[in-house]
Design a binder for these strands. Structure first.
Lengths: 222, 222
DNA sequence: ACGTTAATTAACTATCTAGTTCGTAAAACG
DNA sequence: CGTTTTACGAACTAGATAGTTAATTAACGT
């Protein structure tokens, strides 16, 4: 198992002793750790490597986070809460149901496209059977807002007669997420098997339209 | 990071010296390794643990496979070729296009439902950016048969006027796989966030129908 | 029966890795 | 300006882990 060269993350100027800044040091550790966990998995990521990549020592990681596992959990929590922040900015309430759901699908697509480290962290967490996300109360019921939104759109769509299919908000969210997630997460094996890098820019627009049309077509019924 | 108790895999009767059987020993190592890699990831899986779980010694793993990485590759290749074998048994040629594509979607669903270790291995391989699957010629172009099948169904469907949407075989395969893969692979994080275990038996039939309807609806157009 | 070879076992090693100890110096504070 | 607190760094340790060496034993043909 060879390792890719990792990008240098240090915002700390080279040479001379490190200036004291607890906030920045903590934030840097988190950023580098996110990249390393996403790149190598939980067990594959090395505490020494994380330290080295930011011109500090391992000691600081234990000073701020206590253990490798707690660092990993902190990374997960940070990543998930950034996602929540994005989702809250979505305003599709004033749109007609069909356009609302299409827009939501496309925004979800954009979000997955833009946060690839996050996708990998989710994949890693699933390999470990979600044991950390399950522990964290910060992360429980983080999904509620999206579900509310989808529920309202579905109701409006059935009222207007646009949507026929019986499916609840969770199912619809799953359908959209599956498409967006898979495209990014399975890029490499899919590319090897089918000779197309579905996560490459040249396929972006087509697949973005596709997830919207798929969702709308499904809800309209056959 | 706590580890679940692993299921005992030994077909070798306990007690006394091990009977000599190269084929069986090799096969047992592969089976146990598949389970361990799927459970802990590449770096997280332990060579000692694999050996211990089947009442043999680590030396056997090196005797038959040479290194941890080569063992992992062997596991991947075995898993993928089993998949190919299943896909070849699919006979949807005699069905009408709409039923053919729906059946294919549902068979894909069943397959993902039944091979969860395989799904995890794929996820792990993607975390490592597909570096092993890329090396293996056994695995390259393993996807061709499915694509042929889908292509023929799509052509027939457009000829009959059932399908309107312009999408190629790879896109359609991706759409179906995404749904089926996500349901199994992201079971844990999705469950934690939305309070529903989408991979649980009680949701199986509904979601199975859903992937068929989704694909058909998409191809029929809005 | 018996010698050859393939399969198996036990014990060992070099290296890596998470986590620690202890010391220091910059900021904060009076 | 003296003291305390907070941030940082170098070197160390105990245990784990991939990989090896070499002896041993079961199978199998002759």
């Amino acid at each position: 198992m060879t390792s890719q060269p990792a990008t240098q993350h240090a915002t700390q100027p080279a040479g001379g002793p490190r200036r004291r800044d607890a906030e920045r040091t903590r934030a840097e550790i988190l950023a580098v750790a996110q990249s390393e966990f996403a790149r190598h998995g939980y067990a594959g990521a090395r505490v020494d490597e994380i330290a080295e990549l930011m011109r500090t020592t391992k000691r600081m990681i234990y000073y701020y986070f206590g253990s490798k596992e707690r660092l990993y959990i902190a990374v997960l929590e940070k990543a998930y809460s950034e996602v929540r922040a994005v989702e809250r900015t979505v305003d599709v309430e004033h749109l007609a149901p069909v356009e609302a759901i299409r827009t939501l699908a496309e925004l979800t697509f954009d979000h997955h496209d833009a946060h690839r480290d996050f996708i990998k962290l989710v994949a890693i967490e699933n390999i470990h059977q979600g044991e950390h996300i399950r522990k964290s109360e910060v992360l429980a019921n983080l999904g509620a807002p999206v579900l509310d939104l989808i529920s309202r759109i579905l109701e409006a769509g059935r009222a207007s007669g646009d949507f026929v299919t019986e499916a609840d908000a969770i199912d619809v969210h799953m359908m959209i997420s599956a498409f967006c997630f898979f495209r990014v997460a399975n890029q490499h094996t899919f590319g090897a098997l089918f000779g197309r890098d579905m996560a490459a820019p040249e396929h972006r627009e087509r697949l973005r339209r596709m997830v919207g049309e798929m969702t709308v077509a499904y809800l309209r019924g056959a």
